[in-house]
Amino acid sequence: MDYVLQPVQPSHFAVVAGWLDSPAATLRWAGPGVPFPLPADAFAAALALPARPGWALLDGDGTCLGFGQYWQTTPGSMHLGRIIVSPQARGRGLGRELMTALCAEALRSSAAVQLTLKVYRDNPAAVALYRDLGFVDNEHASVPELLFMARRTA
């Protein structure tokens, strides 16, 4: 199946917010400071759109199956965050589809020489995927719960 990454639209807000089905899931996938429940009308403000561009992974029918954001942290470095695949669509390789497209978009939109992200250490599938995509661990910038990873692009 073909997938497309497009800027997140207001019609996707309730869908993505629905994936955050508990306070714990909201903290894990959206981060501190994002309310639970996340009302669709508060989505853009809570996730700092458009300063941190949000992107939706859509299938051929236009169904939103994934979401991610990126933002500049330092000159030449873009951070990927809030990377989430619909709970109903996990296990089908969509994380790879989302990450490949999101990385390409972050690089296309900037002069970044490095991409970074944080991943929960207890998510071995995501850690393995990111390593497979060229991200390397940076223990110096990590904390016990979260692994900081970076990928040089140049």
Rank of each mutant, 00 (worst) to 15 (best):
F36H: 15
L27P: 00
A56M: 05
D61T: 13
W29Y: 15
F43G: 00
G60L: 11
P35T: 05
G33W: 04
A40C: 07
A42V: 01
F43Y: 15
D41T: 05
A30R: 06
V34S: 00
A46R: 01
G33R: 04
P50G: 12
P32L: 10
G54Y: 09
A40R: 07
R28E: 07
L38N: 05
P53M: 12
W29I: 02
G33D: 01
W29D: 05
P23L: 08
P23A: 09
W55R: 14
T26P: 05
W55M: 14
F36G: 02
R28K: 14
L38Q: 06
L27K: 11
F43H: 00
G33P: 00
A30Y: 06
L47I: 11
D61G: 14
F43P: 00
W55A: 10
G33E: 00
A48F: 10
A56T: 15
L27S: 09
G54L: 10
G31D: 02
A51Q: 15
P53W: 12
A46L: 01
W29R: 07
P32K: 10
D41P: 03
A45M: 07
D41E: 15
G54N: 10
G54I: 09
A25W: 00
P53I: 12
A51W: 10
P23R: 09
P35W: 04
A45C: 06
A48M: 11
A45D: 14
W29H: 13
L57V: 06
A48Q: 14
P50R: 12
D61F: 10
